[in-house]
């Protein structure tokens, strides 16, 4: 089949701005995007820079943006994507070194900053750690991360907030926080409770969508928010919002955005800055009711929320089990 590739190229040392370059090649049906790019480099334009190694979605080095979203070039079959013209760009949220090659240094630094290794409470046991199977199941997806950076490339929050630690590092943080053998979870979570941590995620699902290994970073971030709140780290707007939300839905069965906002932000300054927005809305006849309307069956909703809370699973930690004399 004939395929058109529209590649965004740039050599920052020579070019002021990126430019688009079109390539047309004939390739067999079964080709991946990476196969096609390598064919271009070998037969059409040897100056095209890109990274790859394993060609079988294992090494994580061929991340790039395909038709606007990050993907592994070697996992992208040309027959699966729009063939009018495929646009290929370097990954986002990272400086370009040349063409499709980006600088991963900031990416690695963020990953190192979370101490990506086990920190057990005591010296390792003489033989293996013994943990119940079901305490490890939920780590199944997260240990599959190949650190390709696709999630970081498309992370919405990161695009406006460079201190956000980002989905790869947070997924890795969860990998240790939730590991029954790691004992540094309080310390880890305390750090992630601050600026740049879990509350800076905008819940956009981009990382979940683009991850080639189903790591679901956002789900891990939400799980850590939950762990923090369960540990009593509740003095921040995010935890206040979650608690106020549960409370409002428990009382009225429905949400009231104005009350949610008032109970989630801290301090007069923040409230004042929101009040301008509220006044404008009021002016347009968007007055919130003085008492929110209560749905039929609101008490049943409250009961559901309470009963569900009592069914929340307890976390298993090897060191706690040892202290409490529980056998795994």
């Amino acid at each position: 089949m004939d395929i058109k590739l529209k590649v965004r190229r740039q050599n920052p040392e020579a070019d002021d701005k990126p430019f688009w370059k079109d390539y047309a090649v004939e390739v067999p049906e079964y080709y991946t995007l990476l196969d096609a790019l390598l064919k271009v480099r070998e037969e059409v334009d040897e100056t095209l820079a890109l990274r790859c190694s394993c060609r079988s979605h294992i090494c994580g080095s061929c991340g790039m943006r395909v038709n606007g979203h990050a993907a592994l070039a070697c996992k992208t079959k040309l027959s699966d994507i729009d063939q009018g013209a495929v646009t290929v760009e370097p990954m986002g949220n990272m400086p370009v070194i040349r063409d499709l090659v980006v600088d991963l240094e900031p990416f690695w630094n963020k990953l190192y900053s979370i101490k990506p290794y086990l920190q057990p409470a005591t010296d390792p046991p003489e033989r293996e750690y013994v943990v119940p199977n079901d305490t490890m199941f939920h780590l199944d997806g997260v240990v599959n991360c190949i650190m390709c950076g696709a999630c970081v490339s498309d992370c919405e929050s990161l695009s406006v907030n460079p201190i956000f630690i980002g989905p790869t590092a947070l997924a890795k943080e969860y990998r240790f926080v939730a590991d029954p053998r790691d004992a540094a979870d309080r310390e880890r979570l305390t750090q992630m409770n601050g600026p740049g941590g879990v509350w800076d995620c905008t819940h956009c699902f981009q990382c979940v969508e683009v991850c080639p290994k189903d790591v679901a970073p956002m789900e891990r971030i939400m799980a850590m928010r939950r762990m923090m709140m369960d540990m009593g780290m509740e003095q921040n707007n995010g935890a206040k919002r979650a608690n106020a939300f549960m409370d409002l839905v428990g009382s009225y069965g429905r949400l009231d955005e104005t009350r949610l906002l008032m109970r989630s932000v801290s301090g007069l300054g923040e409230l004042m800055s929101f009040s301008k927005v509220g006044l404008r809305a009021l002016w347009k006849g968007k007055l919130p009711p003085l008492r929110p309307h209560r749905i039929a069956g609101a008490p049943a909703v409250r009961r559901i929320l309470e009963r569900a809370r009592n069914q929340r699973p307890r976390r298993f930690k090897v060191h706690q089990a040892q202290e409490e004399g529980v056998r795994a």
């Binding site: 819940h203 939950r226 979650a242 939300f245 839905v249 069965g253 749905i295 569900a308």
Partner: peptide
């Protein structure tokens, strides 16, 4: 008589509760 979906926040606080509601 239907309740709020939770807009992702009930699920963030308590996934099981979100599923039931």
């Amino acid at each position: 008589g239907a309740a709020c979906t939770g807009a992702g926040v009930i699920t963030e606080r308590d996934p099981f509760a979100g599923d039931v509601v």
